[in-house]
Design a protein around this nucleic acid. Structure first.
Lengths: 346, 346
DNA sequence: TTGTAGGCGTTATCAA
DNA sequence: TTGATAACGCCTACAA
């Protein structure tokens, strides 16, 4: 029989139903193991089931002074890069019985700071910031302050991307991955390159472009600055940048897009102009987005273990000792050569 | 100067700092507008800013008896179908200052019920169930019970998919969309079809397949039962089913995959066998997943406004009057013909 | 092992 | 308008 009065069944209802005290009911249901007699425990549990009791998490949080909430901040959950990371975090969260609060920054650094403050109000155990931070000193400083404040509240902040803040960080080796990719492409015979660089203000994009160029320099190849096209770090950005590149220098042999989504937009830009990939021009991306593994021609890219990184981030937050200094976990990328960059016969 | 004692700044700290009572501080910061004198209000706000105060949301929730949390249940956030819906919900949540709690069901109906119970413990204002429910009477009944319990707690449950539970529902017109797609394909000249049906237990998949077949029947075309291949409602499921179909009847003119992700897997299966899409065989999907709009050949599909549906779901939950009976919103799909199904010259 | 009672940070009622 | 003070639902010493 469900409580007919107020709508919600409370622990007190359960205690009464079972004929025990509030404390006993609490211990039997949410308390720290074997502290209550088997018989009473059974009675309480039975009563709870009968009443379909579900503990009020906020009340527990207030009483305990802590929660089992982890906050996740992403630019855009519809972006497969972030949704993969999120999936990894969800798995780890399930394993640890954590609740995940999701927040969108819409790529506005200010919103990121606001949301972090809101998460602080939630008193979560962890806040995970996924995605690349804008390289603006003021913003970075403000974010850093807010992160420190969050940790002062007892939680742990983890960044996924690159080490910019003095917090636990899961860092993708964007530079090294891109460098290796460049080396591989040179091995395949390519000598002239175009780069769809994404935003110059995004660290992730910049690191990848820099790594790629460094890889080329090692092989004594230089990229004409004019062939490095900046723009949005998105599908449309890739499309636009590729169109520009084709106007400027239609003879480059190979194009590196700073992420897969851009690469795919760029491939469409090529098709729009009757340029065949890979016959007329080769194409490589970065990330190895799952949903895009079936595009044709199959895209050469640098595989990032996004789900794993998400899991790692949460684990990192949860196994941190209080006051432990920031830790850094490097996550390498793996070059995957596919059909979009066939060996170049010269 | 930040509170040095306990780590977290509380409202009481703010009140003391401002030299006012707890009540006044509460009203000035979170209370119901113009109840406190301008001067005191300023003092309190200044103190709060100085102390970098952030209200304890759980304490507020306990005191107020309600939260601004909305729970979102998806099978898998990495699936672009769900991440698009989630993005829409995030937008609406931002507009309404709601916090979103994300939960993964991993396609287990039982986990769905468990998570809904957990959300009940959070006392959220809304729970949004995205994704297709398994068509099992017992599970459905249990889910229905849990949904009722959630609403008894003061929240509102919204389903996104099809009307199966007596709750607010945003229903995609899967049947009609697939029917229209079939008609369009017949118009293009196709007469023999294969269907990659996905799971027979998933309502969404079943509705689409049924709609497609109904559309064909209207045109006096029947699909050989052997050419309806069941399997997983995923990329791999599409790949496997297509392989089967090619073994069975390599001469079908056109294949309908019950969603885009399957279609893309199927296209790879074709390529693996040297079957060219669309020259040798045409292909159509369902959903119009954003990330897949650049695949080549461009995929004919039925566009579902996923983000919009997500937004709609949350709005529906929030503008519901207490006790208002369930409402149903139909969301049509739009057939988009692209290169994967060129007009068939006969 | 069980119960009593005080406390967690806010809100809200009721006087002043 | 402002300030005590009683809730809110739960946890946890402390005492029995």
């Amino acid at each position: 029989m469900t409580d007919a009065r107020s709508g919600t069944t409370t622990l007190l209802d359960v205690a009464r139903e079972a004929g025990v005290s509030l404390a006993t009911a609490s211990r039997a249901i949410n308390g720290s193991e074997r502290q209550v007699g088997e018989d009473l425990r059974e009675r309480v549990l039975a009563a709870a089931r009968r009443l379909n009791y579900s503990a009020n998490l906020q009340a527990q949080a207030v009483a305990r002074g802590k929660t089992n909430i982890v906050g996740l901040l992403v630019h855009d959950i519809a972006d497969p890069y972030f949704s993969s990371i999120a999936a990894g975090i969800m798995q780890a969260a399930d394993d640890h019985d954590m609740l995940v609060t999701l927040a969108h920054t819409e790529r506005h650094p200010q919103r990121e700071i606001e949301h972090l403050a809101a998460l602080r109000g939630q008193h979560g155990q962890a806040a995970i910031l996924a995605g690349s931070r804008i390289d603006d000193d003021d913003t970075l400083h403000a974010l850093s302050e807010e992160a420190a404040e969050f940790e002062r509240g007892g939680g742990r902040v983890v960044m996924i991307s690159q080490p910019l803040l003095p917090v636990d960080t899961v860092a993708f080796e964007n530079h090294a991955g891109a460098r290796n990719l460049a080396a591989e492409l040179v091995d395949l015979g390519y000598r002239s390159f175009g780069i769809l660089a994404g935003s110059a203000r995004l660290r992730t994009a910049r690191d990848r472009v820099q790594g790629f160029q460094d890889g080329l320099v090692t092989a004594n190849i230089e990229v004409d600055t004019d062939n490095v096209i900046h723009g949005d770090f998105t599908r449309d950005g890739g499309h636009a940048a590729m169109s520009q590149l084709l106007d400027r220098d239609p003879d480059v042999e190979c194009v590196f897009a700073a992420n897969d989504v851009m690469a795919v937009g760029a491939m469409t830009a090529c098709r729009d102009r009757g340029v065949d990939v890979p016959r007329d021009i080769a194409m490589a991306g970065f990330d190895d987005i799952t949903t895009l593994r079936d595009v044709s021609p199959a895209l050469t890219t640098v595989r990032l273990p996004l789900e794993k990184a998400g899991r790692m981030a949460l684990e990192l937050a949860l196994d941190a000792a209080v006051g432990e200094p920031p830790r850094l976990r490097h996550v390498p990328g793996e070059v995957v050569v596919r059909q979009s960059t066939p060996p170049l016969a010269r």
